[in-house]
Nucleic acid binder design. Structure first.
Lengths: 194, 194
DNA sequence: CCGTGGCGTAGACACCGTCTACTCGGCACT
DNA sequence: AGTGCCGAGTAGACGGTGTCTACGCCACGG
C-alpha cells in the first residue's frame, strides 16, 4: 500500500529516500532508482533532467526530515535556552548517526545541484534557531551571534562526520558520543551553572 | 624532468596527487590516472589491486603533506600553547582550503580502503599534538584532554567542510574565516587573556 | 639456449549517466 | 467520428567507468 500511484516524480523521491537510508549513497544510481520504482531507466529524465537533480530532491527531503526531527525534539520551546541547545544537539547528532546515508548525501556537494533553489538554504531555518537560542543563552559581549552559531554548528557537523569516519572513537577512546556533546556545549556556552 | 622513471607505483601516486589537487576528486578515475601516467588502464592493477587502494595511497600522501605543513608552521614549538594552537588552526584550515580536492579525498571514507593499515591512524600524531598543546594551555578541571582535543579537531574539521560547502558564508555573512577561527579558539580555550 | 617470471597491453564484461528515436493512449478540436 | 497532438514512458545507442583474464614481451638465470 505504498502510495501505489502518487505520480512518478514523488515515487522516485520516495524510493530514493528509502534506498539511501537503507543502503547508503553508493546505491543511489539513477538506473537503480528507476528499477526499484518499476520504470525504465529513461523515465526519470522527464522529471529530473539530470541525476544530480534527482539526488538534490532526495537530499531536500532529508533536510525536511531533519528539521521536523529537531522541531519535534524542541517541543514548545519553553525550556531554558541551554537545555534546548542540548536537546537540539542530541537531536542533530542522533539524526546524523541514525541516517548516515542520508546525512552524507545532504552534505555531498559534488552530488547535489547546489543551485537547485535552496538546498544550502534548506539548513537556514535550523541555523536561525541556533542563533536565537544562543543569544538567549547569553554570549560573551562583542561576539557576533551568527559567527558563534556558525562555529557551534560546525562543531556538531564535524563531530558527526568524524564519528561516522571512526576517527573520534579511535582518538578519544570513547564509544559514546554523549561526552563529546557535553564538552562541545560547555565550550561554547561556558561551564554548566548549578 | 618529473621523476621520469621512479617506478610505476610511485609515478601513479604522484600523478594522482597532482590530479586531485588540480582538478578535484571527480578527476581521479583509475583510467585517467593511468592515461596521465602514460600506461594502459590495466597497468595500475599490478600495484594497486583495486581503485580504492590507489586512492588510499594518494590520500596518505595528503595526510603526510598536512602533517609536514603543520610541523613547518609550528616551528620549534617554543611559543606559548595558545599561540601555537592558533597557528595550528590556521595551518589546518589553510591546508584544507588550499587543497580542497585533496582534503575532500582524505575524508571521503567511501573512496578509501579504511583498513589499508593506518589512514585514520595517519591523523593520530597530529591529534596528539593537539591534546598536548591543550593540556599545556590549561583545561577546565575534570575534562578528559582527549575529549577536548577531539571536540576541537571536530570544530576545525566542521568549519573547513561547511566553508567549502558555502554554508558558512551564507549563514554568517562573513567572507573571511579568520573570525570563525578566533571564535573557535576562544570557545575552547576561554577568552583571550590580556 | 631455453624457460620462467615480472611487467605491462588489450579486450571483454557489466554497469553507469545521457541522449534520441520511438510507441502508445487519451484529449481537444473540427 | 475522425484526426492531430501532446504528455509519458520505452528501448537502444554512445562513451565512460572498474574489474577480470588472456596474452605479449623482455630480461635474467639455469
Amino acid at each position: 500500500m505504498h502510495e501505489e500511484d502518487a505520480g512518478l516524480r514523488a515515487r522516485l523521491i520516495e524510493v530514493g529516500v528509502e534506498l539511501v537510508t537503507r543502503e547508503g549513497t553508493q546505491a543511489l544510481s539513477l538506473r537503480e532508482i528507476a528499477r526499484r520504482a518499476g520504470v525504465s531507466h529513461g523515465a526519470p529524465r522527464r522529471y529530473f533532467p539530470t541525476h544530480l537533480e534527482l539526488l538534490s530532491a532526495i537530499a531536500r527531503e532529508g533536510f525536511a526530515a531533519l528539521g521536523a526531527e529537531v522541531a519535534r525534539a524542541l517541543g514548545d520551546g519553553r525550556a531554558d535556552p541551554r537545555a534546548q541547545l542540548t536537546t537540539l544537539g542530541r537531536a542533530y547528532l542522533g539524526f546524523a548517526l541514525a541516517n548516515r546515508g542520508m546525512y552524507e548525501l545532504m552534505f555531498r556537494h559534488d552530488l547535489l545541484e547546489s543551485n537547485h533553489l535552496g538546498l544550502r538554504e534548506a539548513s537556514l531555518p535550523l541555523f536561525h534557531v541556533v542563533t536565537d537560542l544562543l543569544t538567549r543563552a547569553g554570549l560573551r559581549p562583542g561576539v557576533d551571534p551568527r559567527i558563534a552559531a556558525g562555529v557551534l554548528w560546525a562543531n556538531a557537523h564535524g563531530i558527526a562526520q568524524l564519528w561516522a569516519w571512526g576517527s573520534l572513537q579511535l582518538t578519544t577512546g570513547s564509544a559514546e558520543l554523549e561526552p563529546l556533546l557535553r564538552a562541545t556545549l560547555e565550550a561554547h556556552l561556558g561551564p554548566e551553572p548549578r
